[in-house]
Measured scan of single mutants.
Amino acid sequence: GTEIELESKNGQREHYTATSEDEARKIIEKAVRRGIKRIELRGASEQLIRDMQEIAKQIGLQYRTDGSL
Rank of each mutant, 00 (worst) to 15 (best):
D22F: 07
E29T: 06
S8H: 14
R33G: 12
Y63I: 15
G67M: 04
I28L: 13
Y63F: 15
L69R: 03
A24G: 02
I27R: 01
A18N: 13
A18Q: 03
R38Q: 06
Q12S: 10
Q47G: 11
E3W: 11
T17G: 04
E14S: 07
S8D: 14
T65H: 07
T65F: 04
T17E: 09
R50D: 04
L41P: 00
I36Q: 01
A44F: 06
I59L: 15
L41V: 13
D66Q: 04
T19M: 13
T2D: 01
I39H: 00
T17H: 14
L6A: 03
H15A: 06
Q58W: 03
G43C: 11
Q12L: 11
L41F: 05
L6D: 01
S20F: 04
I39P: 00
Y16A: 03
E21H: 06
A31E: 02
Q53L: 11
R33F: 05
A31I: 09
L48S: 01
T17F: 14
S8Q: 10
S8W: 15
T19Q: 12
L48T: 05
T65V: 15
G60S: 04
Q62Y: 08
T19C: 14
R50V: 07
A24C: 06
G43W: 06
E23A: 06
M52Y: 03
K9C: 15
V32A: 08
Y63A: 15
L48I: 05
E23T: 03
E21A: 08
I27P: 00
T19H: 15
G43K: 05
K9S: 13
R42Y: 07
Q62F: 07
Q53A: 11
R13D: 04
V32Y: 04
E54T: 12
I49A: 08
G11K: 02
E3T: 08
L69T: 05
A18P: 11
N10S: 12
A56C: 10
E46N: 07
Y63G: 15
A31F: 05
E5F: 14
I49M: 11
A56D: 01
D51T: 12
S8I: 13
D66E: 06
K26F: 05
M52I: 15
I36P: 02
R42L: 08
K37I: 14
K30W: 09
A18M: 07
L69I: 10
E5V: 14
R33N: 12
E3S: 09
R25N: 01
E29F: 08
